[in-house]
Amino acid sequence: MPQLKVNGRRVDYAGDPDMPLLWFLREEQGLTGVKFGCGAALCGACTVHVDGAAVRSCVTPMASVEGASVTTIEGLSDGETLHPVQEAWLEEDVAQCGYCQAGQIMAVAAFLEKTPDPTDADIDDGLTNICRCGTYHRLRKGVHRAAALRAGRAS
């Protein structure tokens, strides 16, 4: 039976290979932190990590993640120790309705792996998730704060 890893655990999947990863995570794994916003790779609410890269799970068919390692917002923290991006989100009080934020956090976490000390221009180019509540002002501060926290933890 095809397998994949979700938040470090091995899980089986024998269903429709065309089903988007989003629905597998939400409906079959109960990982409802992963959100549905557009279903067309346009908003980023469904962002998860597949083998460390941020992907939009609403357009990622199950067939393409066979053998892959998937991390969702539920698996981002290290037990009770939050990921620096989550921590920064609390410090800057970013969320409003909060619906986009799991996807934002997953996108930013992957972005900082590649761009550990981003400029505002890097942020403008590299982050394309939609926040309908318009939390962008704090979100930008959160990204810078997360970069600093990350650097601090690394040192």
Binding site: G33, I73, E74, L90, A95
Partner: peptide, 8 residues
């Protein structure tokens, strides 16, 4: 906020 940033 904590529930939000942890997806809960």
């Amino acid at each position: 906020a904590r529930a939000i940033v942890t997806g809960r």
